[in-house]
Design a protein around this nucleic acid. Structure first.
Lengths: 170, 170
DNA sequence: GACGGGATCGCCGGGATAATTA
DNA sequence: TCTAATTATCCCGGCGATCCCG
């Protein structure tokens, strides 16, 4: 590993241990571990994703989100929408990647850049999904936001009941 | 902000920028940003309402302030605003600290330094809250001052009636 | 950054509703 | 044409900070 330009940051002890515990190779750098944890796609680690269907994600994180009133705390539909997408991505990046090609008549809903969304419609108001390389369209009424989440979750293989609960919670 | 035990790690420049770009509050530490991005439940900002009442502050001092015409004596909204904040802080510094992260679209309302407030908006006219380490923004109309007090008190756990009385007294 | 207070008005984000298209 | 789905305009309420007034 040729040394790149490095920056120093401070993290609290617990977080430090958390990062260290996610080491995958002996001698792996903090940078590489973090990149993996944050899902920043980078040359080095390249998780080989099976292009084949992802077998029913069983929503640990999603359930937790529902129960831990995190959604209720947000005060706009947009915030809840963004939070849900972020959790969905983290729960299963591969399935999310596959499912994210859902689209409307003219607009595409997800993309890995703001520009792509802007190019496929007017005033789509794209936003980055936290902790992921994806962006979503945001200029929609609440019904469509529910819809997008429902379609996405269905394509990711979630159970109907859970899909219902999540999309209604927006 | 109490300093915890900190560890130093190195991250490459791109990752560093990614982390920095996810700053949500001015002055937020790398540690806090990472915790959020990694979805590590942060004990610090955890929901202040786990069914088990977070010891609703029962406003002794606040009531006294209301009754002993101290507020009525002040002749500007700003003075009343500052007095109220000072009393609120003294009554429950911990709750105040937690609640003080309320903010507007661009501005942050409270900070532990004048500079932080100045950095998050134009002409915010910060003032130090007497008897506390905090500063507040002051360049707002009276409606917003009421609003800020109401939001703060709500987050501190005061009862609605009292919140109403206090904010209207500005 | 030096007059201070704060009302007024311009701007922006959220998202319902009107418009459009299949 | 009528309806259902999708788009994106545009209104409303909230926030910021200029600027007026004492």
């Amino acid at each position: 590993m040729p040394e790149k330009m490095m920056k120093t940051i401070e993290v609290d002890e617990e977080l430090y241990r958390y990062i260290a515990s996610n080491t995958r190779h002996i001698g792996e750098s903090a940078s590489d571990i973090l990149r993996r944890l944050l899902n920043l796609d980078n040359k080095a680690d390249a998780e080989p994703q099976p292009a084949t269907a992802p077998v029913v994600t069983q929503g640990e994180g999603v359930r937790h989100m529902l129960e831990s009133g995190t959604l209720a705390a947000q005060d706009s539909a947009i915030e809840r929408f963004m939070t849900i997408l972020s959790v969905l991505y983290r729960e299963n990046p591969a399935a999310f990647a596959q499912a994210s090609d859902i689209k409307g008549r003219k607009r595409i809903y997800f993309a890995d850049s703001e520009a792509a969304l802007l190019a496929a419609g007017n005033t789509t108001k794209p936003r980055a999904i936290e902790g992921s390389p994806y962006w979503v369209i945001t200029n929609t009424n609440t019904g469509r936001k529910r819809n997008i989440v429902a379609q996405l979750m269905a394509a990711m293989g979630y159970a109907h009941g859970l899909i219902e609960r999540v999309s209604q919670s927006i």
